[in-house]
Design a protein around this nucleic acid. Sequence first.
DNA 1: CATCTAATTAGAAATATATCGAATTTAATC
DNA 2: GATTAAATTCGATATATTTCTAATTAGATG
Lengths: 194, 194
Amino acid sequence: MQLNRLVEFYKTMGDPTRVRIVSLLAKGPLHGQAIAGKLGLTAPTITHHLKKLREVHLVYERRDKNTIYFYLNSSLIKQQAEVLSQLLEKRGEELENMVEDSLERQKIIENFYTKDGKLKNIPSQRKKKLIVFEHMVQGLKKGKKYDEKEINEFIKQFHEDYATIRREFIINHYMYRENGIYELNPEEMWAKPE
Amino acid sequence: MQLNRLVEFYKTMGDPTRVRIVSLLAKGPLHGQAIAGKLGLTAPTITHHLKKLREVHLVYERRDKNTIYFYLNSSLIKQQAEVLSQLLEKRGEELENMVEDSLERQKIIENFYTKDGKLKNIPSQRKKKLIVFEHMVQGLKKGKKYDEKEINEFIKQFHEDYATIRREFIINHYMYRENGIYELNPEEMWAKPE
DNA sequence: CATCTAATTAGAAATATATCGAATTTAATC
DNA sequence: GATTAAATTCGATATATTTCTAATTAGATG
C-alpha cells in the first residue's frame, strides 16, 4: 500500500466530471458515447477522464462488438475507504515512513528516467532496479499476450538493451513466458524489495 | 466557480504535500514553521496548503501566544471514509441525499462557527446542536482525563457559556464524568440525530 | 508604542489540467 | 480488403496549481 496510490486516487476523485462519471457507472456500465451524451461533453474529453480513472483502476472495460463498456471497480472504492479510515489509526511514524518511501520512489524514477521517458541506465542496486522496472511495466496491458518481438519493441522505447531487461522481467516475476508468449503477472507476484 | 464540497475534499487530499501535512498533524498539533521545517518547504507554501486544508475543515487552529497550532480534524476523515465506503451500496437518489447531508453538515458548521473557530451561539434545533457539539469535541483527546476546570477552559475557547455546553456534553454522551473527572466517550456512544 | 516573531498576502514563474475540434486508430462486419 | 462505428491521440487554448521571494499584517511583550 503506497502513499502515491492514495494521493493519485484522491487526485482522480477530485474532479467533478470524474465524480459524475463514477456516479453514472455506479448505476451500471456505460459506453463512452453514452457518458459523453449524459454529461454534455465530447468523446475526447471522456476518453481523457476514463484514462485517469483507469490509471487508478477505478474503472475497467469490456468490449462488446464495436462498443466498449466501462465498468466501475467497486472493490477499489471500498478498499480506499478502508485505507482512509485507517489513516488515523496508524501511528504517525508509520505514516511518515510511507510518505518517505513514496518520495524516495519518485526521486529514483526521476533520476533514472529522462524527461521524455527513456531509461538512462539500469540501476545496479536491486531496490532501485525494481522500482525502475516496476515503473516500466506500467506500460504493459494486463491480460494481453505479447510475443517476444512485441516485448522487445516495447522495451526498446525505454532502453536499447532489451534482452537484459526482458530477462529481468521474467526473473523478477513481472511477466511469465510460455511458448514464447509473454504476459504480465498479477502484481502480487512481482518481486518487491525488502 | 462553486464546486461540490465532496469533490473539494478529494481535491484537497489529492496533493502529496497536503497528505504529508495531514500525516504530520495526525501525530499531534504543530505550528506552521515546524511543518515547513519538517517538510523542507517555506512558510508561505505551508500557509497556502493550510488554507486549502482549512477550507474543507480538515484542520483547525488554536493560538498560543505568538504561535498558531494547527490541529487535524480527525472525524472529518472518518466521515469521508464512511461516505466513500457507502458510495456503492447506495444508488441514484439515495446517493444524492448522502451528498446533500454531507453538504448540509458543512454548511451548519460554517454557519454556527466564526472563521476563527468561535461558536456564535448554541443552535436550538437538536440536529444542528449535535453537529455543532460533535465538531467541538474534536478538539478533545481520546483517553485523556480532564478535570472540570480544564473542560471549562476548553469550552471557553469556543463559547462563554461553558456550563451549558459542558452539561450538553454529558447529556449527549460525548463525555462521561466520574468524581469530577471528565473523559471522552467512544464515538459509538455519542448521540446521533435521527 | 516599538519591537519581535509567526503567519499571511502579493506577485511571478513553472507546471499541470480540462476541454475542444480534427485526425487517426481499432475492431467488427460486409 | 473496404466500410463503419466507436474510441483514442494530437495539438491548441484557457484555466488552475504549486512553489518561491519579497513585502505586509497580526498579535504578544517589553
